[in-house]
Design a protein around this nucleic acid. Structure first.
Lengths: 202, 202
DNA sequence: GTCTATATCGGGATAGAC
DNA sequence: GTCTATCCCGATATAGAC
């Protein structure tokens, strides 16, 4: 590791990451990156021969930014409480998801290399969801006839889709509703004869 | 109404609609539209002075394409059956949603005029969802402590988010999972003492 | 590593004839 | 309404000096 220094390279990656969040990949120009970052032309093309190279680095950075948040699902603590905490964490719905947004960018979608970090990120979040859902079932907080793999996709979709609804209406409300509704459903899906002795072997 | 003729104007709208579905707005050029449609330059700018004008027409057309499908929710028939039919209708997840996709296009997102048809479409679908969910509650197919407005957003989000997951993985699976999981949750949210006499006053 | 200069191409039109 | 010609600009680099 070559240690710290907030050098040009890193500045570029950070700036590109922001712009990709705000504007996507296709509609972000190298010019904008240079202007916002203050890094010069020559310098930029020295570090990143093409826009795509820069985008790849930025994407990986954005993914790395996001994953720690999802690890909130991994515990410790009561599974349903972790789920609730994760779902109810404050999020700016109108900004959308740094990572999920990329799936709608035509030039990312068609480029397996750019899509790969997105796929990996989602796969990892899915894993966390599956685990916490399994635990919730084991703790009798959820009916055991629910399929954790499926449900994990459902809950991830609520999040990603919530952003879409919020942006469409230019209103945070639908996003909050979508998450709250999902939580309501989970609560309604407690086993019909729950273990009231609450001896948490977890 | 000036009757049929698949004239240039209509051809342009149709083609732009397809391209916006495939590539979004920002990344679709007037040139592509002309080439795919076969309509000439002069003709195009005669009918639509700017790209944005064409996009608006195409967007409205795409919305009009989609709404009839959502009216499947409006019945008649058993509410839960309608919900299931709507959710399980075959969809090509990798193509994404014609309308929802627009929310991720930077140039649409920032343009209230272009965003408006999207917002109206979603509002209308939301209405259909609220109605069918109310009916499901009235028919004792869903617990009456669930909030139809919220749940409507949740279910719309599952759909929209399902597309995101599918595209990320380049796999229809996560989409199908997300919808199936949502249906599982709805089924698990039946009232604890359901009315087994099934006297449908609906 | 960074700078400035230069190059090519496509996007998004406008002009004016037919 | 449709055609061809033309225009300007920004996107995305490449070249070569410092």
């Amino acid at each position: 590791m070559y240690t710290r220094v907030m050098d040009s390279r890193q500045l570029l990656v950070e700036t590109m990451g922001e712009l990709m969040w705000e504007r996507g990949y296709a509609d972000t120009s190298p010019r904008e990156v240079r202007q916002r970052s203050g890094v010069g032309q020559g310098s930029m093309y020295h570090h990143f021969p093409t826009k795509r190279d820069l985008a790849l680095a930025a994407l990986e950075r954005n993914v790395a930014d996001l994953l720690p948040g999802a690890s909130e699902l991994d515990g410790p603590g009561d599974p349903m409480a972790r789920i609730e905490a994760y779902l109810m964490r404050p999020r700016d719905a109108l900004k959308g998801c740094k990572v999920g947004r990329m799936t709608q960018d035509p030039q990312v979608r068609e480029d397996p290399v750019l899509l790969a970090p997105v796929a990996r990120a989602f796969a990892q979040v899915h894993l966390s969801w599956v685990n916490v859902l399994r635990e919730a079932i084991a703790a009798r907080e959820l009916r055991d006839d629910l399929d954790p793999e499926r449900l994990a996709h459902t809950l991830m979709a609520v999040l990603q889709g919530g952003y879409v609804l919020a942006i469409a209406q230019q209103d945070q409300g639908p996003f909050d509703d979508a998450l709250a509704g999902a939580l309501d459903l989970l609560r309604a899906a407690k086993p019909s004869v729950p273990n009231h002795k609450t001896n948490r072997s977890n």
